[in-house]
Amino acid sequence: MSEAIKKPEAVESMIQMQGVHKWYGQFHVLKDINLDVKSGERIVLCGPSGSGKSTTIRCLNRLEEHQQGRIVVDGTELTHDLKQIEAVRREVGMVFQHFNLFPHLTVLQNCTLAPMWVRKMPKRQAEEIAMHYLERVRIPEQANKFPGQLSGGQQQRVAIARALCMKPKIMLFDEPTSALDPEMVKEVLDTMIGLAEDGMTMLCVTHEMGFARTVANRVIFMDKGEIVEQAEPDKFFTNPENERTQLFLSQILH
């Protein structure tokens, strides 16, 4: 109850983007993005490259700065205030295309770094949590190896475990399978499906349409910095309304 009084927006929606614009120099990358994500929703963003889908989710933890509009994440508005930005980042986990594990730390140290230094958790407790999530992504036996000794698929699963160790309320995935060899895509997608089944709020930029179909509540199609169409996966894939969406789907679904 007190939670609801403190941040009324959190109950309604985890993420609100209202009229968000962004420019890279002269180039208008995001045009009037409006998005509302409820707790537990699983959203897939797709679209041609350069359409602004990665930029959109990177605005949600302020890896990119928006220049106009309002972004509220879990009741905290993203402004220039560093404290607020760090507060949002604590609650939002992110998984990158190129994993971005810290190569000088072991898998276990990668997972305990943020809980220990950001959440001020004692080392032992952080390690317990890390092992729990490493088991969850099915690589506890690699805990004391360095990232460079793992395969791409294993690295990406470590990256997911690392993000989960902060017990985030929202998970952002930025093309998590694009840099993987084909035979490793499935192990990462299975991990993400497992997460989705547990009710995690997820935003995922991906070209894996099979994943979108089975996991997403909503698929968003972006092109040239705008949200062109959003719909439930069934409707999105069988009966897209916009001709741009139809063209895109015809190109990627052979």
């Binding site: 760090e86 980042r89 992110m94 190129h98 971005n100 810290f102 943020a114 950001v118 690392r162 902060m166």
Partner: peptide
């Protein structure tokens, strides 16, 4: 690589950490 800065920032680590 820029990704290392981004991954560290995305976890909520401040500048000095």
């Amino acid at each position: 690589p820029k990704g290392q800065y981004e991954a560290a920032a995305a976890m909520g680590l401040g500048y000095w950490r």
